[in-house]
Amino acid sequence: MQSKSNLDCFLRSTTPVVQSQFLQKHEIRNLNPLWHPWEREVVEYFTLGDLWNCFDELSAYGAGVPITLANGETVVQYYVPYLSAIQIFISNTTVREETESGDSETRDSGSDSFSDDSECDKACRWDGTSSEEGGFEQDCLSHLNNRLGHLYFQYFERSTPYGRVPLMDKINGLAERYPGLMSLRSVHLSPASWMAIAWYPIYHIPMGRTIKDLSTCFLTYHTLSSSFQDMDLDDDTEGTHVKRKEGEGVSLPPFGLATYKMQDNVWVSGNCGRDHERLASLLSVADSWLKQLRVQHHDFNHFMGIRNG
C-alpha cells in the first residue's frame, strides 16, 4: 500500500476533531430549512467553544507533524496555529436569542464590525498593523444573498507573523466582546461561515541542525456550519477524512489550502502525483470561496504574492 505523503501527515495532524453533542427532536424541527434541507433523525453539532478547545494545547506547544526527509530520516516538525480570518453568519432568530440572553452587543455587531473607507484601503495591504474586526468593503453587503444570514462577527488578521498571538489567546480576547464565539452552535451557523488558520513552523525534533526545507507555512480553510457535516471530500487521500461513528466527534478537514515557501520535494513526493492535483484543487477552492464572498483575505494575498493598494 502507498505510504502516506508528508502532505497527508500535515493535514491529518492539523485537522480538528471537535467533541459533538446531539439535538433533541423538537430542536431538529426548528432548524433553518435553507441551511439544513435534509431530513435527519439524528443531528450532531458542536459549540464554537468546544472547537477552540481543540486548539488549546496546539496553541501552547504546536502540532507535531511527522515528516520523512529525502534521506529517509524522520523528524517531527511543530506548527503553531494562528487565527487568520473568520466570518460567522447566523439567522435572525439566533440574533434575537443571543440578545435576549443578555448579549446586548451581538445584535449590531455585524454592521459595527465594518471599517470606514480608509480602513478598508489599509486592510488590503500587508502593512504590519494589527487588525480590528472588519476588513471587507461595506458595499459588499448589498451583494450577499439573504441565504447567507446575518453577519454576527468577522476578523481578519493583518499583523506580521512575529507580531501575532497564538489562536487560543486571540479567541479568548475576542470572546470578551463577542461571547457568541464560545456559545454559538454549528447547526445555527450559515453555510457561509468559515475560518482560516495560519500554521507557522517553530522547531523540529530531533534538533541540532537547520533544515531549510521545513520552512513551509500553511493556510487552511475550514467550514464552521453543520450544513456540510455529512459531505465527503472528493480529494481525500490515504484516509485524511475518515468515516467516523456517531459520537466520535465532528471532523473539520480543510476545504481549501494555500502554502508559502513550499518545497515540492518534501511535501508532494510520492502518492503517484496525486498531491500536486490535490494542492491545486484546494488552492482553487480557497480562491473561489473568497471571490464568492467578495472578501480580501490578507494572508491569502500574501501567500500568493499579491500586492494591493
Rank of each mutant, 00 (worst) to 15 (best):
D108R: 13
W38M: 11
S281K: 08
Y155C: 02
P16L: 11
V268F: 03
E73L: 15
L7I: 08
D234F: 09
I67N: 02
L141R: 06
Y155R: 05
F46V: 05
N265L: 06
K4M: 15
F153C: 04
P253G: 01
T129K: 15
S59A: 08
E41N: 12
E41P: 07
S227M: 10
R294T: 01
F228K: 10
D56F: 11
V242S: 07
Y260V: 00
P254V: 05
L219K: 01
Y178P: 00
D50K: 10
H276M: 04
T129H: 15
N146M: 10
T99P: 10
W38T: 00
S131V: 04
R29W: 05
C124S: 15
M262Q: 04
S118Q: 14
E41G: 12
Y152I: 06
T93R: 11
Q292Y: 15
F136A: 00
C140E: 09
I90E: 01
L290M: 04
N271E: 04
G64Q: 07
P66I: 03
G134N: 14
F46M: 10
A70I: 06
E100G: 09
I306K: 00
I90S: 01
G163E: 13
S225Q: 05
Y61R: 07
I28K: 06
S5Q: 07
Q292E: 13
W52Y: 15
M182R: 11
C217S: 15
E41W: 10
H36M: 12
G102T: 12
H302Y: 13
D103V: 09
Y221L: 14
G62H: 08
F89P: 01
I90Q: 01
E39C: 08
I171F: 07
S13C: 14
S193M: 02
N145A: 08
